[in-house]
């Protein structure tokens, strides 16, 4: 089963890394550059899982998650937060905001895929 993923990160490098990691796997990837852009993409697609960065211009990860949870269509869509190792408090905040899980940057391909499978089947 192809899983459709929306990955939102303002860093091109991170978007590239995610693209590369999911390239030959059974994922259909949508990309967005920040929260606002992410919500726009969300209007057009219904991803099975959303990956989002926290520190982003215009609309950051917390605001983005809030907005996702506010939408009926994505209220229960799993959200994985991209975070750095040292930012434990961020994880807590993210989960309090409604995130499902997290991926610690830098991530290995198998870890990313495992996390996606864990929340999206």
């Amino acid at each position: 089963m192809t899983i459709s993923v929306l990955a939102v990160d303002d860093s091109r490098t991170m978007r590239d890394m995610i693209t590369l990691a999911l390239k030959n796997e059974d994922f259909h990837l949508h990309l967005a550059e920040d929260g606002v852009h992410g919500l726009e993409v969300l209007e057009e697609t219904a991803p099975d899982v959303i990956i989002t960065d926290i520190n982003m211009p215009r609309l950051d990860g917390f605001g983005f998650i809030d907005a996702i949870r506010d939408r009926a269509a994505s209220r229960h869509t799993p959200i994985l937060v991209l975070t750095t190792e040292s930012a434990d408090e961020l994880k807590t905040r993210a989960r309090n905001a409604g995130a499902t899980g997290w991926i610690v940057k830098p991530f290995a391909q198998d870890k990313l895929i495992r996390a996606l499978r864990m929340v999206a089947g």
């Binding site: 995130a99 499902t100 499978r117 929340v119």
Partner: peptide
């Protein structure tokens, strides 16, 4: 469920 988890998975 609030955090989008799916026990099935």
């Amino acid at each position: 469920f609030e955090n989008g988890n799916e026990p099935l998975f």
